[in-house]
Design a protein around this nucleic acid. Structure first.
Length: 570
RNA sequence: UGGGGUGUCGCCAAGUGGUAAGGCAUCAGGUUCUGGCCCUGACAUUCCGAGGUUCGAAUCCUUGCACCCCAGCCA
């Protein structure tokens, strides 16, 4: 049914190519991946790409091989920033996207093992306790073009290292006093290999392990070990970790015999998702939320999963989008129009059609009997959506139409209402504008029209009526608040400035609130989360937090494509 | 001036020596009780540039160029 075929057949991206090779060479008999967020913030659509890749791979290969899995693992190695609240939000988002993990893990589950392995590295002369200060460490590291130099503590004996490391664990030192480092090569061209830190002292409680530890492993040490312990086969991450891969391999290689890992995981990097007209970095999202530029993590203007969910965007359209975008290694920025296409494509099949007038203009149909009310049958679905169902919409002498559907001096290609012009009312009659009533200021405040009783369900005879407009009965419609959402930024990309520079690019019209909209009677029963197409306008959702009977609030998910508006811009 | 990556249509992206897929966007028509959907057609003689190998190159070689990442006791 869905018109959008995947842009590229499955199995065609480089990750799947690698996996297929591995399978064929019998290096693995199943695929085990993991999605490893740090629980220090909310997920956004960039994470969705990674989620779809990792969980999608497990689903796909399980189908093919009978087994394969994807773990959800919280990468909780920095107690200062992480929190259980974020873990809950992340789990909700992954589930909402339509995925279920084969096991929930924490890097902190393995702290004891990691410690044991660290002692082993010390024993093997592969790690040492370094007592350089923060500033000295930086100085000794050298630069990108000049080699670093060995720490004066590099040649401490195994016994001394072990003693110091145990005292580190026992809490005998203050934060920053010592650190455990891998003994690799201070002149390595790859900066990540210049005796990288493995452990640092942090007298901070951890949300999972409490006060048990005061030393915490670094990402580069914890990640490969976590992967290896869990039997991960393909450890997929983003491009900025390419330089870390050498260290990832070093950790595994130096521990695998001792630790007897169930797998020899390999890291592969792909390009993270970027979208224009929005921001994706954790820092900028945080700034928007904390600076109150948006209402919270679930503000519908945000590209967070929570925000998109509240905006009314479906999980399926996000999944389709991710699959359309593909997986590759070139840095890229996807056009927001591509996401919008996926949203419309999905909702076209799912959202019942309904009528709502955002900016009401009163119309009195002078030749329609006063007091008469007809219940007209209006289908919820257009001819091209194979679904059944309709509702009665009341029609009487006074109705509201959209202010934009009337022009005092319309151009000839304006297929709507104007003085003396005739237009079709959707699901109802054709009306002709006979009079325009203005206020003292000259604003059009009311239209007087006549209707043709012969045009209900039939075309007028002897003339062609080109336009059809939506409307709502004056007496039977309900008032609603409508929140018109649009792109977060008015610029494709935020200006390349520092820090808060991007705030200047925020689109002031990213949220326009309309209080006096009128929606058709049937919408009075809508439930929070219900999605509709307001005909000729766009897709809307009853707000999950604020909408309730008697106080209807609708969020615009996305507009309909509007070739009229586009032609007018030219 | 080091190392690791990437460069195919406005935006994504296939292509793995045999003569440039597809999607989005755009444009032109058709259809239409949504200026929506849908349908039809158009849209890279060319693959960052320059040389070379070959009957044949986006794919191989040489050499330039551009952009991204790495100098957190973040991930």
């Amino acid at each position: 049914m869905n018109s959008s075929a995947p842009a590229t057949p499955k199995g065609s991206d480089f990750i799947r190519d690698i996996i297929n090779d591995d399978l064929e060479a019998q290096r693995h008999s199943q695929v085990i991946t993991r999605f490893p967020p740090e629980p220090n913030g909310f997920l956004h659509i960039g994470h969705a790409k990674s989620i779809c890749l990792n969980f999608g791979l497990a689903v796909e290969y399980k189908e093919r091989l009978g087994k394969s899995r994807c773990h959800l693992r919280f990468d909780d190695t920095d107690p200062a920033k992480e929190d259980t609240l974020f873990e809950e939000g992340i789990q909700e988002d992954v589930r909402w996207l339509g995925f279920e993990w084969d096991g929930l893990y924490h890097a902190s589950d393995y702290f004891e093992k990691m410690y044991e392995y660290a002692e082993h590295l010390i024993g093997a002369g592969k790690a040492y306790v370094c007592s350089l200060s923060d500033a000295e460490t930086k100085e000794y590291r050298g630069t990108v073009t000049t080699p670093g130099k060995n720490s004066p503590y590099r040649d401490r004996s195994v016994e001394e290292n072990l003693d110091l490391f145990r005292k580190m664990r026992a809490g005998e030192f203050k934060d920053g006093e010592h650190v455990l480092r891998a003994k690799i090569d201070m002149s390595a061209a790859n900066m990540k290999m210049r005796d990288p830190m493995l452990y640092r002292i942090r007298h901070t409680a951890h949300h999972m392990t409490g006060d048990k530890w005061c030393i915490y492993p670094m990402y580069d040490y914890a990640h490969p070990i976590s992967d290896a312990i869990e039997g991960i086969t393909h450890s997929i991450c983003t491009l900025e970790f390419e330089n870390n891969r050498e260290l990832y391999d070093w950790v595994i290689d130096n521990l695998i015999d001792f630790a007897k890992f169930p797998s020899r995981p390999k890291q592969y990097e792909f390009a993270r998702l970027n979208l224009n007209y929005t921001v994706m970095s954790k820092r900028r999202l945080l700034e928007l939320v904390e600076g109150k530029h948006v209402s919270g993590w679930d503000d519908p203007r945000l590209p967070t999963i929570a925000g998109m969910r509240r905006r009314g965007i479906t999980a399926e359209s996000i999944r389709n989008f991710c699959s359309m975008v593909g997986v590759a290694k070139a840095n890229s920025t996807v056009d927001m129009a591509q996401l919008e296409f996926c949203i419309r494509d999905d909702l076209n099949q799912k959202a019942p059609r309904v009528m709502a007038v955002l900016k009401p203009l009163k119309v009195v149909i002078e030749n329609y009997p006063e007091g008469k009310v007809e219940e007209l049958d209006a289908s919820y679905w257009p001819h091209d959506v194979p679904k059944e169902g309709s509702r009665p919409v009341p029609f009487s002498r006074e109705i509201f139409i959209e202010q934009d559907d009337f022009m005092l001096e319309p151009p000839k290609d304006f297929y709507r209402l104007g003085p003396g012009k005739e237009v079709r009312l959707r699901y109802a009659y054709c009306i002709t504008c006979t009079d325009v009533i203005k206020d003292e200021a000259g604003n059009v405040v009311e239209l007087r029209c006549t209707y043709d009783p012969e045009t209900l369900g039939a075309n007028p005879v002897g003339r062609k009526v080109k336009g059809t407009i939506h409307w709502v009965d004056a007496a039977h419609s309900q008032e609603a608040e409508v929140r018109l959402y649009d792109r977060l930024l008015s610029l494709e990309a935020p200006p390349v400035g520092k820090d808060s520079e991007f705030l200047k690019a925020i689109n002031p019209e990213a949220l326009v609130t309309i209080k006096g909209a009128r929606v058709e009677r049937s919408l009075g029963e809508s439930k929070p989360g219900d999605r509709f197409q307001f005909e000729r306008q766009g897709y809307f959702v009853a707000d999950s937090k604020d909408s309730k009977p008697g106080n209807l609030v609708f969020n615009r998910i996305v507009t309909l494509k509007d070739s009229w508006a586009r032609s007018q811009k030219k």
